[in-house]
Amino acid sequence: MVMPEAAFFFLTLPFAIWAAWGDLKRMKISNVFNLTLFGVFLVSGLFLVPLPEYGMRLAIGLAALVVGFVLNARGNLGGGDAKYIAAFLPFVRPEDLSVFFLVLAMCLLAALLVHRTARRTAWVRAQAPDWKSWTAQKFPMGLGLSGALSFYLAMRAFSLPLAAAAAG
């Protein structure tokens, strides 16, 4: 039997690249993107996840959307980022959420360091001079969010130990 995470990894990888690139270039993750990604889970999850777990994953995504809207209203999180998290969280196993959030924190920190270093490097900026993220005060979280989703799914899909990620 195919592990759902292997299929999810390959299904979401183009979306992760699209979100990271779009956030770097335009500082925006569109509603169409988020709805399409969520639609991918709605369809593929029916075939890859047991029905009770499928419902739990959808509920977690809905809860993430509500929390994201609250954080967005408070100015703590961008609207596109909040919707992206809600759209991709159903791809994460419910029992892995605590480990996933650790992976997420590490990926966001790594993305912040890489982005801030890159934007201070003239050669790198010259390769993509029209990217809004070079001059924006806010950080393009889509970069770290995408990294976390892909890294988590790759760990699960290719049987890399999640405990090693949690241990640091």
Results as ranks from 00 to 15, higher is better:
K132R: 10
V49T: 15
A6P: 00
D23R: 06
V67D: 05
F47G: 03
P94A: 06
S30W: 07
S146W: 02
S146F: 04
D96A: 14
N76D: 14
G39L: 05
A16C: 15
R119I: 14
L113H: 00
T121H: 12
F33G: 05
V40H: 05
P161A: 07
L77Q: 00
Q127P: 10
M27V: 06
H115R: 09
R119Y: 08
R116N: 01
S44A: 14
L65I: 12
L149N: 04
F47H: 08
L65D: 03
L62P: 12
G144T: 06
L160R: 10
L46V: 12
L160P: 05
V43E: 06
K28P: 11
M141A: 13
A82Y: 01
Q137I: 13
T135A: 11
K138A: 15
A59S: 11
Y84H: 11
E95K: 13
F15Q: 10
Q137D: 15
L58P: 10
I85Y: 07
R116H: 11
K28C: 13
V124S: 10
F101V: 11
N76W: 15
P50L: 00
L51I: 06
L13I: 05
D130W: 01
A167M: 11
L160G: 15
A167T: 12
V70N: 01
R74F: 03
W18S: 13
G68T: 07
E53Q: 12
G147T: 08
L48A: 13
F69Q: 14
T12G: 05
G80F: 02
V99Y: 09
M3V: 13
T36G: 01
L13E: 01
F151E: 02
G39K: 06
V67P: 11
P90L: 01
L143M: 08
Q137F: 12
T36M: 08
F88S: 12
V40K: 04
N76K: 13
G79F: 02
F158G: 04
N34G: 10
F41E: 10
L48S: 08
A122T: 12
L11D: 06
F151D: 00
L48R: 12
P161E: 07
A118H: 04
L35Q: 12
P14N: 00
V114N: 00
S44Q: 03
P129N: 05
V103Y: 07
G55E: 08
F151Y: 11
V67R: 02
A6Q: 11
G75H: 10
E53L: 11
M106N: 13
P140E: 00
L71F: 12
A16N: 04
K138M: 15
M3K: 15
V124Y: 06
V2F: 13
L62M: 10
G75W: 07
M1F: 07
A122S: 09
V70T: 08
R57C: 11
A154R: 00
K28G: 01
A59F: 13
L37A: 04
Y84K: 08
Y84C: 14
I60G: 05
A59I: 12
A111N: 05
L35N: 14
L162G: 15
F100G: 07
A105E: 09
P161D: 13
G144Y: 06
P140C: 00
L97W: 01
P14F: 00
G61K: 04
D23L: 10
G78H: 03
A73R: 15
G144H: 03
Y152I: 03
V49H: 03
